[in-house]
Simulated assay, not measured.
Amino acid sequence: MSDSADTSRKSIKTYLPAYQKAEWQSHADELDMSQSEFVRTMVQAGRKGFTSGHEEPTSPGSDPGGNALETRVLKLLGNDTYSWNELLEAVSDDVESRLEDALEELQSNNRVRYSGRHGGYTLVEDGDGN
């Protein structure tokens, strides 16, 4: 990926049968991934067979069930020496991205909303008061 690549985050929306969404969510849960991260990873994995001689960039953490964190640490240390705090900062962006993905997913499913009144995120109450 070149230095000039646009890394800003954009959302996409797709529709699929409820049973398929449930299967994907179950598989994502097994892999300890958000649904957004799971779909992004599976699309990238599927695209590998369609590339035309150039490597596609992957999203951080796109090593389901593997050692993505260890791989990232080794890659970082291959280029320089880092203190504990520097390493923590370098790899913590993945946690922020996963949290953002999870909150986007929960908000799109109307399970969580941001409440200015309460100063943060809150569960959306269903019709039963839950």
Rank of each mutant, 00 (worst) to 15 (best):
E105W: 09
K13S: 12
H54Y: 09
L99T: 11
H54M: 14
S26F: 14
Y121S: 08
G119E: 10
G61S: 04
S62A: 11
S2R: 04
T71V: 11
L31E: 04
G46M: 02
G78S: 08
S36V: 13
D29H: 06
S34L: 00
R9C: 13
H27T: 15
E125V: 11
M42Q: 09
E30P: 10
R117M: 12
E86T: 01
E96N: 07
D6E: 11
D32G: 09
Q20F: 07
S83K: 00
L123I: 08
Q44R: 09
L31G: 03
P17G: 11
P57E: 05
Y114W: 12
N110L: 12
K48I: 11
A45N: 14
E23C: 06
K13C: 12
P64I: 03
W24F: 14
S36R: 05
D93G: 12
L74W: 06
E86D: 01
D63M: 03
L123F: 04
W84S: 11
S115W: 01
E37Q: 15
V39K: 05
A68H: 03
V91S: 06
R72D: 07
V112H: 04
P17M: 13
S36D: 13
Q44I: 14
R72L: 14
L99N: 07
H54Q: 14
P64W: 05
T7I: 09
M33Y: 10
E105Y: 05
Y19A: 15
R9L: 15
L77W: 00
N130A: 10
L16N: 02
N130S: 12
T81M: 03
D94K: 02
S115Y: 03
Q25L: 10
Y82T: 01
E125N: 00
G46I: 05
T122R: 08
K48C: 09
S11Y: 09
R117H: 00
T81W: 00
E96R: 08
N110C: 00
E56H: 01
I12Y: 05
N109L: 15
S2M: 05
S108I: 03
L31D: 01
S52P: 01
G116D: 13
G66C: 12
N85H: 07
K13Y: 07
T122P: 04
V95G: 11
S115P: 02
M42E: 13
G65H: 06
N110G: 02
A45F: 06
Y82E: 00
N79Y: 00
